[in-house]
Amino acid sequence: MALLALPFILGDGYYLSVMNFIAFYAIVAIGLCLLTGYGGQLSMSHAAFFGIGAYTSAILSTRFGLNPLISIFIAQIVSATAALSIGSVVLRLKGHYLAIATLSFTIIVEILIIETAWLTGGLQGLSLIPYISFGDFIIDSDWRLYFIVWPITMLIMLFSLNLVDSRMGRIFRATKESEDIVRLFGANVKIYKIKLFVLSSVFASLSGSFYAHFVNFISPTAGSLMFAIDIIMVLAFGGFTILWGALLGAASLTFLNEYLTVFADFKRTIYGLSLILIMLFCPNGLLEGLKDSLSRLISVKNAGGD
């Protein structure tokens, strides 16, 4: 409800645009939260899928003149297929090995985007990407986009919250604890991991597609390593195992991003330092850490009262 009222308060302008960027981040982060926080699969390939989603849809609509709604849809199929083929290979790996394999995938995608300039525009990027439109109704303002992208974010959030509590979600959470034990209860862990990987990658890709059609311009940074780290930052702020935290994390990072622009290149240094500090003191994420210390404080108080 508050989200519904927000645009009327903020008006069509800078802050509404920031809100939309929060949604782009949040959708990717929700996907990664499911995969890493709940499923225990440490993946760095979400930036790549964001890039695939953005570029596929952008190329199809600019170079082949497809309606963005159709190109977005096709982009998700492309991403899902890519995720399926990558996932079924790399998900045999665990922990850091999986992180390295998915990281390599991100690097490969980034290089491919840069090197296939005839298709992707290379380092110059791809511009003049058409807006999403429903007939004559063109999504060309922050105001209009807000009412598309936030309901989708909320739907994805609701879907994910339900998923986590379902029979499938229990398997994800248990897989994080021990794959072998989950197998002992008859679940085919491999297929579950692939399903989760595909789902979570498509979330990232969907966000990428929307981003491309709203900003009208994409460059290789969309699928880059830095973006992969940004998403990890979102989870580091919001907590790896709190889905709502993905929203808060996305908000904090986006605002931080805006306010830290004065530091220019030092921004990355500040990010790096804060990531190290968060990992050191609250390995499950800042929000989770705060929640823990709060509950500890309360229990200490209660114990003192006895």
Binding site: R167, R170, R173, E177, F185, A187, T241
Partner: peptide, 22 residues
């Protein structure tokens, strides 16, 4: 299993539901 190997962050109920997964 040896050492119990429960799904520690999950509730008792969820652990039992997992046993009944199939």
């Amino acid at each position: 299993p040896e050492g119990r190997r429960l799904f520690a962050p999950m509730t008792v109920q969820d652990n039992m539901n997992l046993g009944a997964y199939l």
